[in-house]
Amino acid sequence: MYLPDFEYFTPDSVEEACQLLSKYGPKAMAIAGGTDIVVKMKKEVLAPEILVSIGHLPELKKIEYVPGKGVVIGAGVTHNEVQNSKILQEKYLSVCEAAHQMANNQVRNLGTIGGNISNAVPSADMPPILIALDTTVKIVGSKKERTLPLEDVFKGPNQTVLEHDELITEFVIPDGSFTGSTYLKFGLRASGALAVVGVAASVQMDGGVIKDARIVLGAVSPVPLRAKEAENLLKGKQASEELFEEAGVIASGECRPISDIRASAEYRRDMVRVFTRRALLKAVNEGHV
């Protein structure tokens, strides 16, 4: 396989990157870790004439806690940096655990969290847990800036609301009242496998009662999916395995899986039931967000 010809820019700022993307239009694409785009270029699935590098920009590399705002994660942070971040390990260990379950070590070393989101692959591992924690996204373009709930970023497989001159610059996990969360990935081997089903759950417990909950499903619909009916079932109820099984059954009715080379839709549906129950149990019992 051979990488086709392209022009390569290394701008000094996000602003300059957006201007380049604006100037060259759809024939230009941003590249950070390149773990997806380079492979697709070699396979001729993508053929950008211009690549605008953003992975090196220091402003995209931060992970910090801003009191009153939450944990801010720059879009250029790699999965291994997420996994190893002290701040995230203390505040949102589940996010670190999700990052650790991504692909394999080589990909985690290069691939960025911004890339994982912008790429909008239905089986991506980071969106479910971040959505379950009410994460918002800052999007910067050549003319405007906007902030959206992460949940609203995805439009379909490989499709987001980003315009071609826009970049995700940071994620904010807001200070919340969740008492527990987790992401369970079901892949077909221990490492280097895409999720057949991914389920993230977050709960706000008041003693044994669930005050609030989020259930986010990966790999079983065109976009990461909130299982809202299942969430509603839980609110105000006493936590129990039976309740979580019921939530799993409802969630498996809410998802819209496809059959592919890895699994049938029927199997994925049942795995949503199993992993929703398991994720809720873990979120409640493990006691970390």
Binding site: N104, L188, R189, A190, S191, G192, A193, L194, I261, R262
Partner: peptide, 10 residues
């Protein structure tokens, strides 16, 4: 990626 040989972790 899709022809899955066991990894060391498996």
């Amino acid at each position: 990626a899709e022809y899955r040989l066991p990894t060391a972790l498996d």
